[in-house]
């Protein structure tokens, strides 16, 4: 009995992480949001390689502050940088550019308190970004996200849509995705997710990837990532995200 009490006591006194994780997924938007007046710097890095059997590669960097406006609404002010590489006739062309900047809002339709929130939590994300290269192009993004919490297991469906609107031409694509994440310790989660981009016109590309994901939180720092293995018109699509709260 003494041993049991000692173990219980030790478990209670062990340092704990501040939260279960800001995002459990790599490609999917989660339903977690910042507490009111919380500020976090987030960085996302994503790769898309070998689309349509080519050796083309793209790497995107998303960086920006995320601000908790209320306990259910957060705003992000991202900038996006793009690196592209393509090979034509054994000649590799590469470019690196500041591509977009904008604003996005994420609203969670439930209490942010895990003890008071229902198992089913919806979230809506809306973003508007100005294209720096094509000056009259505006990118509008939307996501309807639903997560379901079953104790240690979290399941999530994210139905996204992206529209590039410009005076000359427009482009629309759907981004349906889903995943699961299992808590293996207070700061670590593992799971799997599927992500796709489906163009609704001839201007875009369509591809899909499936792969494992991992999320880790320690104090004010969190990390999540997924390694997407191509199942349709792409070879690999890894993505990592990390954030630090202030």
């Amino acid at each position: 009995m003494r041993t049991v009490m000692a173990v219980l006591l030790a478990a209670c006194l062990m340092p704990r992480t501040a939260a279960a994780g800001r995002s459990f997924y790599g490609w999917l938007y989660g339903t977690e949001v910042m507490p009111e007046r919380g500020i976090e710097l987030q960085t996302w890095v994503l790769d898309e390689s070998g689309k349509y059997g080519t050796s083309n590669k793209e790497t995107w960097l998303w960086w920006g502050p995320v601000i908790g406006v209320t306990d259910q609404l957060e705003l992000a002010l991202p900038i996006e940088l793009e690196w592209q590489s393509s090979e034509v006739d054994n000649v590799v062309k590469a470019s690196f550019t500041f591509r977009r900047f904008g604003i996005e809002a994420r609203y969670r339709f439930a209490s942010s308190d895990p003890a008071e929130a229902p198992s089913l939590v919806p979230l809506v994300r809306i973003a508007a970004k100005r294209d720096v290269i094509v000056r009259d192009r505006l990118r509008v993004e939307g996501d309807a996200v639903v997560s379901y919490d079953l104790g240690a297991l979290n399941a999530l469906v994210d139905l996204g849509v992206v529209a590039d609107v410009a005076t000359s031409s427009s482009h629309t694509e759907l981004r349906p995705s889903g995943g699961i994440s299992l808590r293996v310790s207070s700061g670590l989660r593992i799971g799997a997710e599927a992500y796709s981009e489906l163009s609704l016109d001839a201007r875009g590309e369509s591809w899909a990837a499936v792969g494992p994901n991992v999320a880790w939180t320690h104090g004010r720092f969190w990390f999540s990532g997924a390694f997407g293995i191509g199942v349709y018109h792409i070879k690999t699509a890894p993505r990592v995200m990390w954030g630090i709260a202030f």
């Binding site: 704990r16 507490p35 009111e36 007046r37 306990d71 308190d113 003890a115």
Partner: peptide, 29 residues
Amino acid sequence: LHNVFSQSPERQFDLGSYTRGEKKERQFP
């Protein structure tokens, strides 16, 4: 501003930062 929080195993919460006149509630299950 204050930022009320608890890391007790019986009830963990983070009320975020809020200023005079505002209040937040939590249940203790």
